[in-house]
């Protein structure tokens, strides 16, 4: 099947992918392809900085809304050769699919501040 290649830097008009807002912008773009069952390659070529805030807003939200199987079958990530970035993308995916992991850090308030 034909795959569309998207450049993150073009979607967010920046080489710096650090903000939640930029992540949500990228999410909205990819979401349209996912809704039309179009496979996409999301390339991080040209991106100089990537944060968890960006990854969680884009990748985490995609996995949270559409599920692991659906996103894995439609979206591929390319040009991520930096180990810190790979870790962020993995974490964003887990946060998106695993509700227990997502809430693991939510401490019991009554225990903490009793």
């Amino acid at each position: 099947m034909y795959m569309v290649q998207l450049l993150v830097k073009d979607i967010i008009s920046s080489t710096v992918a650090i903000s939640n807002t930029a992540g949500l912008k990228a999410f909205d773009t990819v979401r349209k392809y996912v809704l039309s069952e179009q496979q996409v390659i999301l390339s991080f070529a040209g991106i100089e900085n990537l944060t968890s805030a960006f990854c969680n807003a884009m990748i985490g939200k995609l996995y949270m809304q559409f599920g692991e199987k659906h996103i894995d079958s439609l979206v591929k990530f390319a040009n991520v050769d930096n180990e810190v970035w790979q870790e962020k993308i993995r974490t964003a995916k887990i946060l998106g699919v695993d509700e227990k992991f997502r809430n693991a850090d939510q401490e019991n308030i009554s225990q903490l501040f009793a």
Partner: peptide
């Protein structure tokens, strides 16, 4: 302290997890 322990006020549905 609540924030340092890993809690967040984030609206997950709107902004994604994290």
């Amino acid at each position: 302290q609540w924030a340092l322990l890993g809690n967040t006020t984030r609206d997950v549905a709107k902004f994604g997890p994290g």
